[in-house]
Each structure stands twice: as structure tokens, then as C-alpha cells.
């Protein structure tokens, strides 16, 4: 019996690991649940979703330069159900660091390396946080809004 959206919502509202947890209109947003978490809670969120059969779709960043914050977005899909969950967290732009979820999903390894390339967000505990798509000596982060080519 697959876990329902209600149960997932209850989990995230109940454990207190989510700052907010709002159902999203699938027809408008393309996902079902929008979870905002503290940076320290992304691993437990990944463990919970991994435990009920979710797969990691992708990890990416958004540079909110005006708010002086970096957002890290984790997209999850389920191989046997249409549910789509988004977990997001915000960290200060001056020191963007979140724990790695590559221990839960090995596929996160590359996604985190890419996000580190593009945004300079560090993933604490990542086994191999070296450039993936950028040259090996790259010291710039092209998707930061203050990057000018």
C-alpha cells in the first residue's frame, strides 16, 4: 500500500522538521507537496522519502541575491505513484552549506557536485565535491546572479 499524500503531509507537519508544508495544485505547479525545511533537516527528509519508495529527481539551487540567500531545491518522484514532492531549504548567501544526502541517494552525488559547480553551495560530508561539469580548475560559479561572463 503506497503512502498517501495525507500521510506524507502529516509526517512533515508532525515531526517539526518542516518550517512549512503546503499542498500544491498539481495542475498549476506540477508537484503535489511543497515542503520548506531547515538546512539541517534535508537528510532526515530524504531518509523518510527514500524509506517510502521515493526516488530523487534532481537537486538544484536558486540564488536569491536580493534576500541574500541561497535556496537548495530537492525534487522527488515515485516510480510507482504520480506523487511529486519538493523539499526546499534556504541558507545564507555568505556561507551556503547544507548536509549531503548522497548517503541516502547515491544519485545525489552528481547532482550535488553540479549544484556546487554552479552556485558554490557546499554539501557537508560529500565524498568528492570536485567540479563535475566545469573545468577542474574552475573558481567561479556561473549561476550566481552576480556572475558576469
Amino acid at each position: 500500500m503506497p503512502t498517501t499524500l495525507e500521510q506524507i503531509k502529516e509526517h512533515f507537519s508532525g515531526t517539526g522538521c518542516a518550517l512549512s508544508c503546503a499542498p500544491a495544485d498539481r495542475a498549476v505547479k506540477g508537484y503535489d507537496l511543497d515542503v520548506s525545511a531547515n538546512a539541517g533537516d534535508v537528510v532526515s527528509a530524504a531518509e523518510y522519502l527514500g524509506g517510502i519508495g521515493f526516488a530523487l529527481d534532481t537537486i538544484t539551487g536558486v540564488d536569491w541575491i536580493l534576500q541574500n540567500e541561497m535556496e537548495v531545491v530537492y525534487d522527488y518522484f515515485h516510480p510507482a505513484s504520480p506523487l511529486r514532492i519538493v523539499v526546499r531549504t534556504r541558507v545564507p548567501r555568505a556561507n551556503p552549506e547544507v548536509p549531503t544526502v548522497s548517503g541516502v541517494f547515491p544519485g545525489a552525488n552528481w547532482h550535488e557536485r553540479e549544484t556546487h559547480d554552479f552556485f558554490g553551495i557546499r554539501f557537508a560530508g560529500h565524498p568528492n565535491l570536485i567540479p563535475l561539469l566545469l573545468p577542474e580548475d574552475a573558481d567561479y560559479h556561473p549561476l550566481r546572479k552576480d556572475f558576469n561572463a
Partner: peptide, 25 residues
């Protein structure tokens, strides 16, 4: 293995999982 790495398409279907976005979403 497909699930842990997020592999999809003919790779996951060749592992017996009927995951196809055209059907599931």
C-alpha cells in the same frame, strides 16, 4: 539501483518497473 540513482526510461523498465511518465503523470 534505478531508484537510488533516479534512473528512468527504458533503463528502469528493463528492470521490471513500469514507470513511464506518459502513463503515470
Amino acid at each position: 539501483l534505478c531508484r537510488r540513482y533516479g534512473a528512468t526510461g527504458p533503463v528502469i523498465r528493463g528492470s521490471g518497473v513500469p514507470y513511464d511518465v506518459r502513463k503515470i503523470e
